Amino acid sequence: MIITYRGHVMLEVKNSYLKLTLLLIVLFISMILGMYVYQHAHSKTTQQVDLIHATYVQPGRVLTPFQLQKTDGTTLSPATLAGHWSILFFGYTQCRSICPTTMDMLHKVYVQLRKDQVKTLPEMVMVSLDGQRDSLEVMNQYVKAFDPDFRGAIGPMKTIQGLTQELGVVYDDSQVSRPDGQIDHSGSLTVVNPAGEVVAFFIPPMQAMDVAKDLETLMNTFQMN
């Protein structure tokens, strides 16, 4: 779509961006409605948590089985997510905007958590949406450039596609085969508790201080059943 004023091009929006925006709107509405129905169907077990920015999911949702390779030599799966807090972010190393911005914000979150003397930091894992260009070595160099405690993960695109659909992550990799091809994708964060349950989502735009405070609230109110 091109908007002109007195013969001059004022704004150009790519069709892929419009498509992604519409998908994000529909997905977000569907996710909110789904969580509303799910929470009210289990109202006897819900717990109120006062969060600044995050969307709280209660009761938590257990992920369906999957397995990816992590940059630290271990695997990422529902089983390995259990036992500690985790933050999942989906992106790719050739990304020009969403990924570096989000990763830098997450580094600031970690700085704040360390400042607040959080004993055990959540594990931050960036899952690659680029099966062609992102190897374990490339991912490891990328994530550690933002924070030495960050991890990356790669795997079969069919597996990642199923995981993104389950978590409401939207992406379009139809242009990835072109030189310097970009992948349009959403920038949400998924929070998984030590029981291996998805308990919160962060939707952009996000402020590091708000994310850090919400993570601390979630960790402080968690009780293993």
Rank of each mutant, 00 (worst) to 15 (best):
G162Y: 02
H185N: 09
Q161F: 12
I160L: 11
D180Y: 08
S186R: 00
L136Q: 07
P179D: 05
M157E: 15
D147E: 08
V143S: 01
L167Q: 00
F150I: 03
G162W: 14
T159Y: 02
P179C: 02
S188W: 09
A145H: 14
R151Y: 14
Q141S: 12
G196W: 07
G162R: 09
T164V: 08
S186L: 03
Q161G: 14
R178K: 14
A145L: 13
G187I: 13
N140E: 10
D180G: 11
E197H: 05
D173C: 08
L163G: 08
Q141H: 10
Q141G: 09
V138E: 04
D172G: 09
P148L: 07
S128Q: 07
N193M: 07
I154P: 11
A195M: 09
V169W: 00
L136M: 06
A195N: 08
P194A: 02
N193C: 12
T164Q: 05
R151V: 09
I160M: 06
V176D: 08
E137Q: 07
F146R: 00
D134T: 13
S174Q: 03
D147P: 04
G152D: 06
E197I: 04
D134A: 02
Q182W: 14
V169Y: 14
R178N: 13
D130A: 10
P156N: 15
N193V: 03
G131S: 07
F146M: 12
E166F: 12
G155Q: 12
Q175C: 08
H185S: 01
R151P: 00
D184S: 11
D172T: 06
D184A: 13
K144F: 12
Y142W: 08
G196L: 11
S188I: 10
M139Y: 00
L129F: 06
Q132C: 02
H185Y: 04
E197R: 06
G196P: 13
T159I: 13
